[in-house]
Write a protein that binds this DNA or RNA. Sequence first.
DNA 1: TCTGGGGTCCTTAACCGT
DNA 2: TCTGACGGTTAAGGACCC
Length: 500
Amino acid sequence: MRSAPTILHLDMDAFYASVEQASKPSLHGKAVIVGGLGPRGVVATASYEARRFGVHSAMPMAQARRLCPNGACLIPRFSLYREVSDLVMGLLRELSPLVEPLSLDEAFVDLEAGSAAFDAAGARAVGERLRADITAATGLSGSVGLAGSKMLAKVASEEAKPNGLLLIEPGTERELLAPMSVRTLPGVGPATGEHLRRAGITTVGELAEAGEDELVRMVGRAHGAGLYRMALGLDDRPVVAERDAKSVSVEDTFDVDIHDRVRIRHEVQRLADRCVGRLRASGHSGRTIVLKVRRYDFSTLTRSETLRGPTDDPAVVREASARLLEGVDTTGGVRLLGVGVTGLADYTQEDLFAQVRAAEADGEPAGGAEESGAVAPDGVEGSSGAVEAGAGGGAEVAGEAGGAGGVGGATGAEGVVAAGGAVAASGDAVGAVGAVVRHWAAGSDVRHAVYGPGWVQGSGVGRVTVRFEQPGTPPGRVRTFRVDDPELEPSDPLPLVGTA
DNA sequence: TCTGGGGTCCTTAACCGT
DNA sequence: TCTGACGGTTAAGGACCC
């Protein structure tokens, strides 16, 4: 806690949805819902227009569609969001070297450390200028909270939303917090909120009255003590610029539960490879391998194994994952599988012993002539999967199509996984490799040889509808093509600003 | 009609060694 | 030598965040 409100929290308004609106002029002012489009997709972000229909983050997409049938439902384009985020974070770093990003659309800034502001008036001026700069640079709006601590700055930006600024004057924090719901405090989610509610505590004021001992008894030592301090407006956590990753993981939810043990093993191997790809790309190795299984009834279990030393060897991670899977009962079906690595070391140590063992064990798989080091960097894992497709047939065919569109992003590939699953069901479509079934996800970028850049508005029954417009242009025209139209191809997102 | 993906942190229990 | 307290590590699960 400090005396002056010089901690700034920036929160971009409905970030993903706003980026989509900015890059697709016909969606300006319209209900936009960004998230997974598969049968088990959930909403990542909804525009304020969509929120008026009751749509919100984490809601099943199917429900969102029912609530807001005319909303545009789009897949996330993380590569573009990352570009915009980098721009915004760059603006923040002009204010201070102490910038702590929390996600693509949120960050803390210590203004005092950057000598950007030392009092309330200065902080407010910096905040307003920042908001103007962000809009000038990206066309988007962000909300700013200013206070003497991280927690209060975050509460302030939340109150300021959308497109506002709120500064909490030192000395006023307790009375400001008192009437608020306990749920406004970071760390109080559905479970803790319900727990407190049953004890008759619904506001922050009541939380403070309860006292530390009472709270510790109710929700545990660390949580209770932290909660009590927050209720009093106390928080002295510093803004930390660089924090090391603690784990790397990948997971896939399948469109339909999978039962086949062979398929489950295969998926786990693919996930292990993808995980190692990400691990290596980040320059890490790790010591503990974690397998995650979500069963048909949504019950989730994890199994982990700690190695003698850190590894980034795909064969080692594959083996460990397979071992862990053997101890899991999957009868009844599996809806999600995940592989993760924790206990990260920021160096890469060759685990020679394990590599020798892996090489010895490598003769086992049927077509196992592949080199164990064939883990491609993130986003290209289709290639390693293709090696294994010798057994599984056309499973990776759709992966190829999606891969072309997903150049920039891990998530470009996510949709592909779902598509791959669907194709895999048809099994032995080896002969169909030439006739690639292209999957046009709503919201993805395309380019037509004649009409130029556009985005997929929808597709089905052999047709794909494309709207031809770009950031900065007036709303564009819609045209429909056959899904296999040779003049239509996936493309990269266009920058939000810069052309204008 | 269900419930994503990528993380973080905390709690509890078991186990091991001192 | 037996027992207990304690601390560290591992494993599993859960809550929470965006």
